[in-house]
Design a protein around this nucleic acid. Sequence first.
DNA 1: ACCTGAACACCGTTCAAGT
DNA 2: ACCTGAACACCGTTCAAGT
Lengths: 227, 227
Amino acid sequence: MCRMARPRKPLLSRERIVVTASALVDAEGLDAVSTRRLAAELGVSGPSLYNHFRNKDEILDAVADAVSAQVDLSMFDAADPRDWREALRDWAVSYRAALSAHPHIVPVLAQGPGRRPAGLRVADAVFGAMVEAGWPPAQATHIGALMRYFVTGSALGSFARGFVDDETAYDPADYPHLGQAHRLAEHRQQVDEGAFTTGLRALLDGLALQYERTVLAGTVRRSPKTG
Amino acid sequence: MCRMARPRKPLLSRERIVVTASALVDAEGLDAVSTRRLAAELGVSGPSLYNHFRNKDEILDAVADAVSAQVDLSMFDAADPRDWREALRDWAVSYRAALSAHPHIVPVLAQGPGRRPAGLRVADAVFGAMVEAGWPPAQATHIGALMRYFVTGSALGSFARGFVDDETAYDPADYPHLGQAHRLAEHRQQVDEGAFTTGLRALLDGLALQYERTVLAGTVRRSPKTG
DNA sequence: ACCTGAACACCGTTCAAGT
DNA sequence: ACCTGAACACCGTTCAAGT
């Protein structure tokens, strides 16, 4: 019609790049993502990407943040902040589910939120909820950190898949207790799920003990808003 | 003297390569390790490395295994296997110390022991000790896995360093509880150590609860060696 | 504003050739 | 047995040029 200043739509967008990069990471791993390969999948030439991202690391950061955005945080809006234990459990389960669905990007994600908005929303929500529940700020920080240690660790590498499925690989003379280790691969799902569930329960039980000893012991029944 | 079949000593050895590669990883990170760069540090040409390792991944595996070899396992030789809690704590502390000293290689290490001898010795020792302490094999496997999740997660990325040291980075409108997050960098050591210590104690407290409920509850005082 | 080809300084790995 | 240079098929990124 009038003006028609821009003859055709741009071929690329940040979102298209992130979606395609995510699919490539999931399908073939981090090493498969080269700017040229990614550009080819998008039907453009390599340098085109630099119109939308400053460099390759920024693309991978965006892929990682898209995973963080999948983490459910609604449990922290719960009516009673004293239900911190259940909220923390549900959050950890959702957190791990999101990461485990995209294990190849976890090393990037594990470097911390930095300036990634979704990663920061996660950190903000858990810290806020713990403070709201009565944990001192320093302890609330520790809880956010240690939960991330556990969840990223569990999503980073499958424990079971860390052993090779080869009966002759583990000589009983060298490793007297690993006679069945080559069979871990068969039970991958159960082993990793079981270890995560056991560890999560242990963490929460242990934190509840500390909560009783420190937070509840020091409480003298504050009424909110009235000082 | 006689024969002198080999005129001069080889320039390289697997050990020299691993030592130099480790130093390079520690000093400049995984990305700095290229076969050409590593070879240059060793005073040889790039392809020479292929006389000693099949490929670059094998070199990084060897670097990772050298870190696993630093983990103290002596606590699992303790007289009384019922002291599993203390042994597990001391092991976790030593494990994390070894990994934290070489954080850049942790993503490689976290992929599991595979066929790396030192990594397998670690897995063998902790599994054997837990079974000896009375844990059922499936639970002993879970403990080995969940402890690795926690330790590798804590060594992989500093929680505190995961936030940028920039007062304007975290807008209170977006992240209402992160007002002090930019100050985490100052207290990096205390935050990461504190979170690890808190998490480790919580894990062990929680596991001890489970031990009381399941292992001790089912025990009818076995005398060893007499069935 | 957004995409391109050419170019630069790199990669991991193979292989024939040397000693 | 162990090291080399040359070569192959790649990299990430910059930049002048096009529209």
